[in-house]
């Protein structure tokens, strides 16, 4: 059967289900990104100001983002190689490439939670809500709103990168569970399905990286 002759009815149900899951995830992250961009355009000056500390140095360091992007791209490559190994019934290679992917996911999370986030908080990233004064219109921020908008930036940053990190953990767990069976020759088609989910995780980071680390 060649790809040109395949109809929608012939696409395996598992693959269609994963595409449906991916579509849902893309809508969730698409909503996050759209809201972030709305806020970014509204409060143009305060968002870049939130990203520097009191001495004017960058809080978010581009090189950690670049390293993590490279790690995720490498993990996408390794999981697709695991899929290739599954097609060729190379059980040992499935295990090797899956473990490489899981290892890269672990490094990604260590950098994110162990290095980047503590660094961000240490240099002034804040999630605290600021003070509001009552007015006849409702309320105004005690500082005119600037600090509140800076906090808004960090809320977006931690929620979006945190939610993405959660997907990294879920994806790595899925790959591990699939690997346990596939390395014994069971349910080899699931290697591709877990891989598709993993590529979606990579896909989202491809846009989070320039949004938060570059193009400010």
């Amino acid at each position: 059967m060649s790809a040109e002759n395949v109809t929608i009815e012939q696409v395996p149900k598992g693959r269609l289900a994963i595409w449906l899951l991916i579509a849902g995830e893309l809508i969730i992250f698409g909503g996050f990104i759209a809201c972030y961009l709305l806020a970014r355009f509204e409060y143009g000056g305060a968002f870049p100001a939130a990203m520097v500390d009191s001495t004017g140095g960058d809080i978010i360091l581009w090189y950690w983002g670049a390293i993590n992007t490279t790690i995720l791209l490498a993990s996408s490559w390794s999981i697709v190689k695991a899929h290739e190994a599954a097609i060729n019934n190379e059980l040992g290679k499935i295990k090797t490439y899956s473990l490489i992917t899981i290892g890269l996911a672990a490094v990604f999370m260590i950098i994110k939670l162990g290095i980047e986030w503590p660094h961000d908080f240490h240099l002034g990233a804040s999630l605290r809500s600021f003070d509001w004064l009552p007015t006849e219109y409702g309320a105004i921020a005690a500082d005119g709103g600037f600090e509140s908008v800076k906090t808004l930036f960090w809320s977006y940053y931690f929620i979006m990168t945190g939610f993405h990190g959660l997907h990294v953990v879920i994806g790595a767990l899925a790959i591990f569970i699939v690997m346990l069976g596939a390395s014994k020759g069971k349910n080899l088609h699931r290697v591709e399905l877990a891989g598709m989910y993993w590529h979606m995780v990579d896909l989202i980071w491809i846009f989070l990286f320039p949004m938060f680390y570059l193009a400010q």
Binding site: A3, I8, G30
Partner: peptide, 25 residues
């Protein structure tokens, strides 16, 4: 990597409609 270019055109709707939702919003 996700092999979408080898799937029937109807499958393209899954990712591209999701992205369209974001743009419309």
């Amino acid at each position: 990597f996700m092999h979408l270019k080898y799937e029937p055109k109807l499958v393209d709707l899954f990712p591209y409609l999701s992205i369209a939702c974001m743009i419309i919003f």
